[in-house]
Write a protein that binds this DNA or RNA. Structure first.
Lengths: 325, 325
DNA sequence: CGAATCAGCTAATGCGCGTTACTAACGCGC
DNA sequence: GCGCGTTAGTAACGCGCATTAGCTGATTCG
């Protein structure tokens, strides 16, 4: 298809610049403590640019004993726009630190995470759900320096999201609220944190604890959940996310009811279709971009041997009041 | 955080099995033409398993001169469930062929694709949009053997999707139809293919060409598009995807109109909220999983020096008739 | 004016693996 | 006994880079 396309090596650059390969390496990696005159440096950089030289990751990794690859493991959660915003910011922010982000969707038939990690020789692996112990151990054994699970306490604290939802409903005068849980097991930890926030607020305001109800993405299933809530005099529900909130809206329609009069609904995420729902969905938006940038900082620090401190990483979540609650 | 966690090398395995490192390599890579007695083979495999040995990708790549990493470049398109299904199948299917898939979200501030590719030393790079010439060239120069852009003729042929949408509307008696284009430039090539299919059907059936109209994800914008269509006596519209279709539904509501009576709407993708729309969205579903598996075949063949033949890769798209058209 | 310093480089080494070349041991026919 | 083929391995090399140790010539110092 193409001519063999001879790869340019640092030796080629060295030859072109009239210096040794060592010098090329020193210049390109900007090694401190080395006295390279500006002129030589310029010649090397120029030659590298002209030849379009790009060091081979495998050789560099092998020699240096550590790669600059960070692997992000996504475990089947829906990639909402805010998640991809997160990924993009995470990636760019890592890039400015000389690190390269690649992601891997962990699927059943796919390669085990530790194999992927070994294949790209990742020096850090970040996940959005806790890793199970064997996996974490295997990753370490496979030479990963930093294994980091961004849990539900990650930015914004998921609990805070639940609190915002609940406060809004209570502020609007609702006295008995419900919570729509996802059916998928994958995001349990996030869901529980959010629900926890809701329950906290209920307790603080002295109302009955929220009535949690798993809710499928289907109007029939959602209609059942709606019926259950209404039986228990629930007048407003917080949904785990916008998709589920929209399902609740559909469930209401199935009964000939509407939000917010018959049941108020608050989502989370502000996905694009949220504002297009009938009625437009009141929801919680949060900027994961900032969190991604912050996480990159944390990862870079961790790889430098520093401490890994996750804590609160970004501006708080924001309530968007639209029609549904 | 953790003890240095000494990495196990193939030499460690060799020592444990009482053979040379060469033998370990031969056994683990299942080199044909080598006569390794079953017993020795067993000993090596056992030792590798016990030590939990995993070859370092960088060393392997460097020595072999080619990696087993395939890089999938996603350029800011929304990751709908069917796309992630595609990725998962693609990944697993590559895995059975000894290849490892990682993906990279191409974002503005992020690392250039060729840098990412060099960092992981990918031997194939696959994209869902055509690469521009400089990028493709740079990838080749960076040592990528196979650069593959899965275009709009990929499975299912995007044109076919447009045809299905249009046929459905015409079969229902609509005589003048519209097309809702995405605003984002990123998926122009896909959008054009789909629109092309719609126009073909219009021509075949002898009705006026579909009226194309960019449609934003916002009820105000969508309402404008709706007004424009109605001015031109359009009674049914095909949308580029479900999100846009849902926007059109919202635009209708803004005018106090409803689908399908005032304007029929057909989407594409069957995203989870499609069935939850009011009215439930008639849409086109297609199985990208099969396409992913097929694509893996193509990539594997391409890396073996075979020919790269994309053509039709999967079962055709399927019309799901729900309430909106 | 020789020794010590230093700037500016380079030769050499090894990372962990795949691969090529080579050998030691063992039959087997004559 | 010798020659020859086969089996079952192994020693050695090199991939492209980072890194360490050192080397050369100029400058400064005592």
């Amino acid at each position: 298809m193409k001519p063999p396309a001879k790869r340019i090596t640092s030796t080629d650059v060295a030859r072109a610049a009239g210096v040794s390969q060592t010098t090329v390496s020193l210049v390109l990696n900007n090694k401190p403590g080395q006295r390279i005159p500006t002129d030589t440096r310029r010649r090397v950089l120029e030659a590298a640019r002209q030849l379009n030289y790009r060091p081979r990751g495998s050789a560099r990794t092998l020699a240096a004993g550590r790669s600059n690859v960070v692997l992000l493991a996504l475990s089947g959660m829906p990639i909402s726009p805010s998640v991809s915003g997160f990924i993009e910011h995470f990636g760019s922010s890592l890039a400015t630190r000389g690190l390269t982000l690649v992601t891997h969707l962990v699927a059943s038939g796919a390669r085990a995470l530790e194999d992927v990690s070994a294949a790209v020789d990742a020096s850090a692996v970040v996940g959005l759900e806790p890793f199970d112990e064997p996996t974490a151990e295997a990753l370490h054994q496979a030479g990963v320096d930093l294994v980091l699970a961004v849990g539900a306490d990650f930015s914004p604290p998921q609990k805070e999201i639940g609190r915002l939802q609940a406060r809004h409903l209570l502020d609007r005068g609702h006295r008995r609220i419900g919570y729509a849980l996802p059916e998928r097991q994958a995001f349990r930890s996030w869901a529980e944190e959010r629900l926890h926030g809701v329950l906290e607020v209920c307790a603080e305001r002295g109302v009955d604890p929220a009535v949690a109800q798993p809710t499928g993405l289907d109007d029939a299933e959602a209609a059942q959940a709606v019926a259950a809530w209404r039986r228990q005099s629930v007048t407003g529900v917080c949904a785990y996310n916008d998709e589920i909130a929209i399902a609740v809206l559909a469930g209401l329609r199935a009964h000939g009811l509407t939000a917010p009069d018959d049941l108020a609904v608050v989502g989370v995420d502000d996905i694009p279709v949220a504002r297009l729902a009938a009625p437009p969905l009141t929801t919680i938006a949060f900027d994961l971009g900032a969190a991604g940038a912050r996480l990159a900082e944390v990862v870079a620090a961790g790889l430098d041997g520093g401490d890994v401190e996750l804590s609160v990483l970004a501006p708080g979540p924001q309530l968007l009041v639209r029609g549904s609650a």
